[in-house]
Design a protein around this nucleic acid. Structure first.
Lengths: 341, 341
DNA sequence: CGCAAGAGGTTAATCGCGTAACCTATCACA
DNA sequence: TGTGATAGGTTACGCGATTAACCTCTTGCG
């Protein structure tokens, strides 16, 4: 119905009076036992006929698929929009490039449960999986059920090295922010987070270390709807500080907008610093200074770790990705008040 | 190495002393010729052993793949970040949901050339393809080379109905913006666009129609680097208007930030209205009023049109998606100066 | 002269599933 | 008693590619 039929190895072989094995061997560079003339002839015919391998047949015939699955937790908090999240979409973008660069295909999927990942890996004979956004016990569960290696893209500190696992150095990120704020002359700094454990607390501790003085800590509500009122009630308290460090760009930008709406000039009256290095941070007014993660590096590392695990070259291990401060316009220089530009 | 081996139809059949054909028929609901006892037994065993079909084998055995490809033009202007673009990532998100809801798989790919799409469709036996971001002659080329139906996600007006093609009603979008501005008492309105043809011009014409008066038109440079200076030189001219309509949220937000940086209050001194309904618009300060596209509807329509084409139920045709004004805080009410909250 | 060792292939099984064609036993009915 | 329908399956091939095992013809060499 649409254009002519698909070209198969068999067609190529028949047209040249050869067997399919020979054509297949040429395709895979196993030309030791084939004369140069034949190789040339096959290559030319393949080119001429525009041969494209059938993946279904290829997958079925060999025992590795060269497909890597990327599975993202379709968490309710995203309300069905996971792939639009800036961290996730960056992950997808870079993972796509990186799998392709290594000669693999990527298959993308949202999942709510671990069993979906297992089924996904099984049905497509995935060589490995990158998982994003699940929690620790789910990963333990996954480890017991799945038959291929996987890497946790947004992992956590795990001294036992149970998983292929990527983390960032949260403490160092906080420290860099703290040190920068100190250099800019800030001493009264508030840390804003929605909990006081794990990575958020590491970031806070790093902040204090960098500042060389203890920062304030404010635990904000998880529910977006509650936060506006929460901030409203604490506006005066917040204005007591010269700078606010939020544990994510999301919170930083939200707070920045709240403050601006309430007539607080950023950074003149209050400095704000975020964490993530999102595009939103770079597009904000003023540009949000933030502890930036290198998403490209993270994806590269994830795929390389996964491939090594697939090839049995390495065991499950936690790899730490460095972070680096990105300077925008949201932090005021208290020490050095001459302006440039 | 990782957990036990995969369960095949053959295993199920052997354990029950049946043939694989019977198991396969149960799996596909072809149970007319199978006794209830056998059906129950098979179903139970499938459940018990956790059978998951092998897609490679399935694809190979039947002549449709139930895979839909989504191919996005990896255009240089995105600098390798296509999947992070807000329009694109929304498309991916909704298309993923919609393919799954219809029992299809989605395969995602960046491509630079039409031939990559053709090869992609061929190697995976795609049933159909959704393409995003290429231009008209490329689509014509694609039509001649590909063997399966495709739908253009971000299409254009095409009276000849040569393609499966989605457009929005650009004229009506402009009209809605114009009408709203008129209701808000604006008469001196400037339209900002980077060209004066096609959809941008339709939006401009719609704007004038809605306003019931001719709007100004300003063609801005394509190059991001040039625009700041361009605006700077025309700041006074721009401030002569009471409202600016930009043909995209991207331009609207960029202009809004520029104006704010230059001390112009939005919307008190100047109103701004955008086009697209992006997340950035909703998160801006002030929230950007914008002509919103319904991305969920677009994806749903794209998949339905594609499936109809796949099933031969419909020919290639252009489908128009309605747009609807989303009211933020970036347009001042000039007529009715009493404020509510 | 006879045998081994390449060179240059070919044959045929296999991957897991789908499906058209075929088989067999039972029962009804003229 | 023979015939045909029906229920309840089974057999066997094909999908397209990979690959181990197997040919056959030269040529070299003791």
């Amino acid at each position: 119905m649409w254009s002519e039929n698909k070209v198969r190895i068999k067609d190529i072989a028949e047209e040249l009076g050869l067997s399919t094995a020979t054509v297949s061997n040429v395709l895979h560079g196993k030309t030791q036992k084939i004369s140069d003339r034949t190789v040339k002839a096959v290559e030319q015919k393949l080119e001429e006929r525009g041969y494209i391998p059938d993946m279904a047949a290829t997958l079925l015939a060999r025992n590795n698929s060269r497909i890597i699955g990327v599975v993202v937790n379709d968490h309710p908090k995203y309300e069905g929009h996971v792939f639009e999240d800036s961290f996730i979409s960056a992950a997808i973008n870079y993972l796509s490039d990186e799998t392709e660069a290594n000669g693999y295909f990527m298959m993308l999927k949202k999942a709510k449960k671990i069993t979906e990942i297992v089924a996904f890996a099984s049905m497509w004979n995935l060589d490995g999986v990158v998982v994003i956004g699940f929690c620790e016990d789910e990963y333990q569960d996954l480890r017991d059920r799945i038959r291929v290696p996987f890497v946790i893209y947004d992992g956590f500190l795990d001294e036992q090295n149970r998983f292929g696992n990527l983390t960032i150095d949260d403490f160092d990120g906080g420290r860099q922010a703290g040190q920068y704020l100190k250099e800019m002359g800030h001493r009264r700094v508030l840390c804003v987070a929605d909990n006081e454990i794990c990575m958020d607390y590491l970031r806070y501790q790093g902040l204090c270390e960098g500042l060389e003085v203890k920062a304030g800590f404010m635990k904000i509500p998880m529910q977006a709807a509650e936060r506006e009122l929460f901030y409203q009630e604490r506006l005066a308290a917040i204005k007591n500080y010269t700078a606010v460090f939020a544990v994510s760009d999301y919170y930083a930008l939200e707070l920045m907008r709240f403050l601006q709406k309430n007539g607080v000039d950023i950074p003149d009256e209050l400095s704000v610093i975020g964490f993530d290095g999102s595009r939103e941070a770079r597009n904000a007014l003023p540009k949000l200074t933030t502890v930036a993660q290198d998403n490209a590096l993270r994806a590269k590392t994830a795929i390389h770790l996964l491939l090594e695990m697939i090839n049995g070259e390495t065991d499950a291990q936690t790899v730490c990705i460095p972070v680096k401060l990105w300077v925008g316009d949201s932090v005021k220089d208290l020490k050095n008040l001459k302006e440039d530009s």
